[in-house]
Design a protein around this nucleic acid. Structure first.
Length: 271
DNA sequence: GCGCAGGGGGTCG
DNA sequence: CGACCCCCTGCG
């Protein structure tokens, strides 16, 4: 059993698990977070200023998963005022290095959807693929999901995404994600866009959260609000990505998570 | 209290 | 550009 102790100023579970990068973690009344990753249960227990992260498996794997093997202090040393505020507000945020296939399916489900419903669909998806498995069931393999029919998937509440999930699972069964993650970001993005149900925004989420491409900058409604309201940047998603690339560089995606988290707690809707 | 628009971390045709 | 599953919220 690996047991890692982090300072909450480096890894704050409420922020890490609550900021929407993953949909499989739940918080109990005491503030304990639990979920799964790499096929095993994960538990995160706050204790004072620290947090204890527990899961079966090698320590290195979990240092990588939590992104605690990256130094965040030196990522944005020349941050502008907006980002500096977001960094301060999101202290303890980390961009998890999640598994590619889980990220692919999860973010296909996330499109035009809301978080409670996304979590529910994923939870039921895991449950049907792992009958008799004690909770929390691991995320299914591509083959397990491809074995489900579109009707099965609709019954989970996936709606019109059922066909996308099925087709993408079949394609994923023939995809070497380890090899893919070795390619440069533009190639990765292009490859991801070939999956059904994966458009520009979802492709960038998968590249960032699942394939370690920290320069990927997902432009969603919240990031759009930030760029419009706080930077005065208007235009297409592509123009906003270009702005982010110039402004934040190769870790634009990590900046995006801080901005996203900041936006959701500070900005008004409807612009 | 119920019932019905409105909208949600977009994508496809 | 408009439709799209489904759930949840807000108002009347």
């Amino acid at each position: 059993m690996a047991e890692l102790v982090f300072s909450q100023s480096d890894f704050c579970p409420d922020v890490v698990f609550g900021c929407g990068q993953t949909f499989r973690f739940h918080r109990d009344a005491e503030g304990v977070w639990s979920g799964t990753a790499h096929g095993v249960p994960v538990e995160c227990v706050p204790s004072g200023d620290d947090v204890v992260f527990r899961a079966e498996g090698p320590k290195d794997q979990w240092l990588r998963y939590t992104d605690m093997d990256r130094n965040y202090d030196t990522l944005f040393e020349d941050a502008d005022d907006v980002l500096a505020r977001a960094l301060q507000h999101g202290k303890g945020l980390r961009v998890l290095r999640q598994e590619p296939f889980e990220t692919l399916i999860s973010f296909i489900i996330s499109a035009n959807n809301n978080i409670p419903r996304i979590s529910g669909i994923i939870e039921r998806l895991c449950a049907v693929c792992w009958p008799d498995h004690p909770n929390p069931a691991p995320f299914p393999s591509p083959e397990q999901i491809a074995a489900l029919s579109e009707v099965d998937l609709r019954a989970l509440g996936a709606g019109y995404r059922a066909a996308y999930i099925r087709e993408s699972a079949m394609r994923a069964a023939d995809t070497d994600f380890a090899e893919l993650s070795g390619l440069p970001y533009p190639k990765v993005r292009e490859a991801l866009l070939a999956f059904k149900g994966v458009g520009p925004k979802v492709a960038d989420c998968i590249a960032l959260f699942g394939l370690g491409k920290t320069e990927a900058f997902p432009v969603d409604v919240w990031v759009r609000r930030i760029l419009e309201q706080l930077y005065g940047v208007r235009g297409t998603a592509a123009e906003m990505r270009r702005f982010a690339e110039e402004r934040y560089g190769q870790h634009a995606g990590i900046a995006q998570q801080y901005l996203f988290h900041y936006a959701r707690s500070h900005l008004e809707r409807g612009t």
